[in-house]
Amino acid sequence: MVIRLYDYTLSGSCYKVRLMLGFLGLGYQAVPVDFYPGREHKTLDFLDINPLGQLPVLEDDGLRLRDAQAIIAYLANKYDNSGQWLPRDPDLFGQVMMWVLFASGELMAASAARLHDALGYPFDIAAVRANAHAAFRVLDDHLAERAIEGKTWIVGDSPTIADIACC
């Protein structure tokens, strides 16, 4: 049973899932969705697949998941035998969750800015850009401290789903 990914090449959220699949060495079938100009993700047929009308959506062995962050956590949990991508140590796990949720929260302002500039979405671009810069600062300040500690990754000593989510 092959993994299927409802995908749009230019979506940052889809990119994160493709990246995670790549690092885990997992093959998958991409199902291209005409996000723009077709707005296929808002059609009745697609809303049956994801009632939020969003990409990406992953199907694996009868399971269907939406939300890029949930998907990469699922993939790491199920397929990563090394335990590196989703650490079980309580401290590290807590930090990873914090940054993954930051990625789906404050950091999404960056995606909104791209949708406005490139695809003409009608957002308040000044507010969106200010929010994106503020979120980047939070991440940058964290990484500056980590660099002093001699660390490269957002959490721990090796890449985790936090790094995938925040990319």
């Binding site: 749009y8 090449t9 230019l10 291209p32 005409d34 723009y36 077709g38 296929e40 490139a118």
Partner: peptide, 15 residues
């Protein structure tokens, strides 16, 4: 190719 694949290809190039 499907229209979606065609559009995807050209959009990727342009981006």
């Amino acid at each position: 190719s499907t229209m979606t694949q065609i559009i995807d290809f050209q959009q990727s190039i342009f981006l």
